[in-house]
């Protein structure tokens, strides 16, 4: 193969290399721009990832879901989760489905963690896709401490701000009361 055609191939490969992460950027921006905002009540933890650094792992109250619909689910099965807003302003899981839903865009894709039937009800543990909140490495451990303190001392509500549209979801922020977790940490440093 001559030099010029190798060069053209390299240009093509370079375009693919750029476009793959660029598509991710585009899709996430679309969800942020056009999707609806939902707040999920949380419980965080603090591990780390070798490439992407420190993050806070979130767990959500709504991941535990009970329904009278007793259709059978498999562990680790993908599931579309339809949500709406409860009276307190926080998101509620409304229904699960194996297929994307039509007529309503407020659903995202998750996974079944566990499933069992009891007293005519299905008790399902779900795995939400937006469970990692990346933070500056020095902040992540302190974020967790501040978070626990806030829960213990004031009983303030902690929650995740997400945007959701047609099966896709983006985690925008994690808040304690009205303050973002990032700002809570920088404030607690100044104490």
């Amino acid at each position: 193969m001559n030099k010029l055609s190798l060069f053209y191939l390299l240009v093509m490969v370079a375009l693919i290399q750029i476009s793959v992460p660029a598509i991710t950027v585009y899709q996430n921006e679309m969800v942020l721009y056009k999707g609806s905002e939902f707040l999920f009540k949380t419980i965080p933890l603090d591990p780390s990832d070798p490439f992407r650094g420190k993050y806070v792992t979130l767990r959500f109250e709504e991941e535990e879901f009970e329904t009278l619909d007793t259709s059978l689910w498999q562990r680790n099965e993908s599931v579309y989760i339809l949500i709406d807003k409860g009276v307190d302003g926080f998101a509620r899981v409304k229904r699960l489905s194996r297929k994307p839903m039509s007529g309503n865009s407020n659903y995202f894709k998750g996974r079944i963690k566990s499933f069992y039937l009891a007293d005519g009800k299905a008790i399902i543990s779900l795995d939400f896709p937006f469970k990692r909140y990346y933070m500056k490495e020095s902040k992540a451990p302190r974020a967790e401490a501040a978070f626990e303190r806030a829960l213990r001392d004031s009983g303030q509500q902690t929650f995740a701000v997400t945007h959701i549209k047609n099966g896709k979801s983006v985690l925008v922020d994690v808040k304690i009361g009205e303050i973002s977790l990032k700002d809570v940490v920088s404030e607690s440093k100044n104490d």
Partner: peptide
């Protein structure tokens, strides 16, 4: 690049 994009949007995907 891939790592940073998934960091920016808090994408949890497996390593």
């Amino acid at each position: 690049c891939i790592s940073m994009v998934s960091q920016i949007y808090n994408i949890p995907g497996k390593i």
